[in-house]
Amino acid sequence: MRHLHVYILLAVAVLALAYAPRVNPYWMHVAIIAMFYGILASSWSLLAGYAGLFSLGHMAFASIGGYASALLVQWYGIPIPLGMAAGVALCCALGGLIGWVCLRMSGPYLAIFTLGFAEIVRITFSTEDDITAGMAGLHTEPLFRAATRLPYFYTAFGLLVVSLALMGAIVQSRWGLFLRAIREDEQAAAASGIDVARFRILAFAIASGFAGLAGGFYGHYIGILTPSLGGLDLMAVLVVMAVIGGMERLPTAVGGAFAVEFLLELLREYGQWRLPIFGVILLLTMRFARNGLLTPFWLHFVRLGGGARGAAAVVAPGRKDSRA
């Protein structure tokens, strides 16, 4: 059946939404956090997996988005969605700026640079405590004054779906093709007529905007922001999620985020051991299954519908090849 996989995904989504009110608050919280990570992992995959820009500053943008929104709401009393939008705009601008500054950096140098950026953001947020409340944590305005987490669940779900739809449209369009061409060979991409600088900046701006969106939502959901949101450890967790799932496709990156977040909760009794365990899983994945553990399943699943998702849709119009 054509597009069978799309119908299956839709059915699962409808079931999840319908079943949500009966989920206990604890697992609902886990699901909300998983969706938060889902936005981050997929936008990081857009940047690192598609464009090949291996940024270690992605969580810093989530942190900036979160703090910006929380502080704007606190100072000026603007509505929370407006604060979040301002956070997204700020992250887009800053992301574009970072993308511009590191235009000539490749591979490890870009990683070092963005790592430096993240550390400076973290140090500034924890040191300027008269503004950000430092390590004590900044109390934020809650998005909903509701007795249950249900509205947050629906909001997170909506944000994730919209983010994936937008990013999916980008990677399926010619922009996605250009980003992959830049990842493969910048010189050849330029010789083929791609404005490499423009697309590198664009990739940074877009991905950082989504990171800021996730961060803004997180801040107004969780109620308190600490500088560690932008720290190296959460960045590493994000890399674990995207790489384990498969960083070169948006759905597998989201799947990785879900899987890791739920496993982190299921393995709660192992306490501190969970992080090094996931470190080992990351290393094993890199060593033996570099395309990600979920990628083969996803490709299989897509084949159910006979589609060619994963390859940009602009590429094979008019022909129904099943290469994904």
């Binding site: 061409a181 050849a188 991409a189 007529g193 390859a311 590429v315 094979a316 119009p317 022909r319």
Partner: peptide, 29 residues
């Protein structure tokens, strides 16, 4: 030779075609 290694043969040719303004995916394909 500098190709886009992890893109298909067809995609390699689509890229320069699609960088032209007002190119349509069908026409380029």
């Amino acid at each position: 030779t500098q190709l886009f290694g992890r893109m298909t043969v067809l995609e390699n040719l689509m890229v320069p075609g699609l960088t032209r303004p007002r190119s349509s995916a069908h026409e380029v394909a």
